[in-house]
């Protein structure tokens, strides 16, 4: 396994963004480590996300259940799903624990459904670890610019 560089991390994060916009959820699930957490906070400065309420706090089982729901055809907020186009940029490597490559970046998602276009902006923190396949996702924290304020029903993944 080779060490992670910022360019390889950026390539991984762009791939992840493209999988989500194209609803390729099976491939998205495969990006994760078995112990990884997918988190969308309601509190911007929480020290321990497990101890507070989040919009999303998913371990592997919940990620799989979430994908199953989005693809089931039984959820009216997800079928038809909103169309999304997202851009990820402003990458910066951050200090992290040994063996973890931490990247902070900006994400803009434009959503379209029912004659309406909406935007969601977020800071995103990725914890990446080397894997046989290249890189695996250990943690993703999507801190929405308005995550501590009123949002709307979201039938896709951020």
């Amino acid at each position: 396994m080779t060490a992670i560089s910022l360019p390889s991390a950026m390539e991984f994060i762009w791939l992840e963004a493209d999988l989500l916009d194209s609803h390729d959820y099976a491939a998205w699930l495969a990006l994760w480590t078995a112990t990884g957490h997918y988190i969308i906070p309601t509190e911007r400065d929480a020290e321990d996300y497990a101890a507070v309420l989040n919009v999303v706090y998913d371990d592997q089982e919940m990620r799989e259940a979430r994908v199953k729901r989005l693809q089931s055809g039984l959820s009216m907020s997800a079928s038809p799903a909103a169309r999304t186009v997202r851009t990820v940029s402003r990458f910066r490597a951050m200090d992290g624990a040994a063996g973890v490559f931490v990247v902070r970046c900006a994400q803009h998602i434009v959503e379209y459904k029912y004659d309406r276009t909406r935007m969601l902006a977020a800071d995103v923190l990725f914890w990446l670890v080397p894997a046989a396949s290249g890189i695996s996702l250990q943690r993703k924290v999507v801190t929405l610019i308005n995550g501590d304020d009123a949002l709307h029903g979201i039938g896709y993944l951020l």
Binding site: V55, A65, R66, S75, M76, H152, G153
Partner: peptide
């Protein structure tokens, strides 16, 4: 909540 397994479907129904 906005990404729960229930509320977004409720919200869609109300809309």
């Amino acid at each position: 909540g906005p990404m729960g397994f229930g509320s977004p479907d409720d919200a869609e129904g109300w809309e």
